[in-house]
């Protein structure tokens, strides 16, 4: 019993029979999935198979129609909108395909925003953002606005923003989908590095190369169901 409890305690994500319907369409059909702390999991599948919906369930951006979505030990389906927002703030970092940066804010302020929302003073938030910019190699672009950044730079800013509050789980939705191959490679390396230092990572992609390079486990979705799971071996 104790060992089972210990085993569950290390779970960051636990989906149990999650079903999601939009009107008459079923996006997820009884998905069960567990992700342990420090794991890097990639979810793959064709367009419309439910990848993004799965990611939204885990991020608390959407709620299951039936089933349970537990993240960091919290049942997201039972939480209010405000509680979900506070939960996301503390536990989840998100990276999107199209970056979703605020155009009116310079790069550093875009990243600092995530910390400022928790009440961290502007200067402290910027210092933390600058540390991350240093680590991600974009410190010299701190004052540039998103429109002046390359795709790779924008995605690094997005990653910095996602890491600002040291999240338990980093979610990446097609993080290289809008990037040229060189920038995509850089972002891939960045995600690998992050996982190697212990960051739990859930990656949604249809890019097999990205999945196999970054993830330790591959989950395949089709028509809203998990159709296969593979453990991937990486050579050091």
């Amino acid at each position: 019993m104790d060992s089972h409890h210990d085993h569950d305690a290390r779970l960051v994500v636990r989906l149990d029979g999650v079903r999601k319907e939009y009107g008459t369409a079923t996006a997820l059909d009884g998905v069960s999935l567990a992700i342990r702390a420090g794991e890097a999991v990639a979810v793959m599948g064709p367009s419309g198979c439910g990848k993004s919906t799965l990611l939204n369930m885990i991020a608390g951006l959407d709620r299951p129609t039936t089933g349970t979505a537990e993240v960091c030990g919290r049942d997201l389906g039972a939480m209010t909108e405000t509680a979900l927002a506070l939960f996301r703030r503390r536990n989840i970092g998100m990276v999107f395909q199209f970056f979703n940066l605020i155009d009116d804010l310079p790069a550093l302020d875009n990243a600092a925003l995530a910390a400022q929302l928790t009440g961290v003073p502007a200067r402290q938030a910027r210092d933390r953002a600058l540390e991350l910019f240093d680590e991600l190699g974009i410190a010299d672009r701190r004052d540039a606005y998103p429109s002046a950044l390359s795709g790779g730079e924008r995605q690094r800013v997005a990653v910095a923003r996602a890491l600002m509050n040291r999240p338990a789980l980093l979610l990446a939705d097609e993080p290289t989908g809008a990037l040229d191959s060189r920038s995509g490679e850089q972002v891939m390396d960045l995600l690998i590095d992050l996982n190697q230092i212990g960051q739990t990572l859930l990656l949604v992609t249809h890019d097999a190369g990205l999945a196999t390079r970054c993830a330790g486990r591959l989950v395949e979705l089709a028509d809203g169901r998990v159709v296969a799971e593979h453990t991937l071996e990486h050579t050091a």
Binding site: A59, L61, E81, T82, A85, L86, R88, R89, R90, M94, F96, N100, L101, I102, D103, L113, A114, L117, T118, R161, A162, N165
Partner: peptide, 16 residues
């Protein structure tokens, strides 16, 4: 809408 979605995704509460 996109900015609002982004802000909410990084933890802005409905009240905020």
């Amino acid at each position: 809408r996109r900015d609002l979605g982004t802000l909410k995704s990084v933890g802005m509460t409905p009240r905020q």
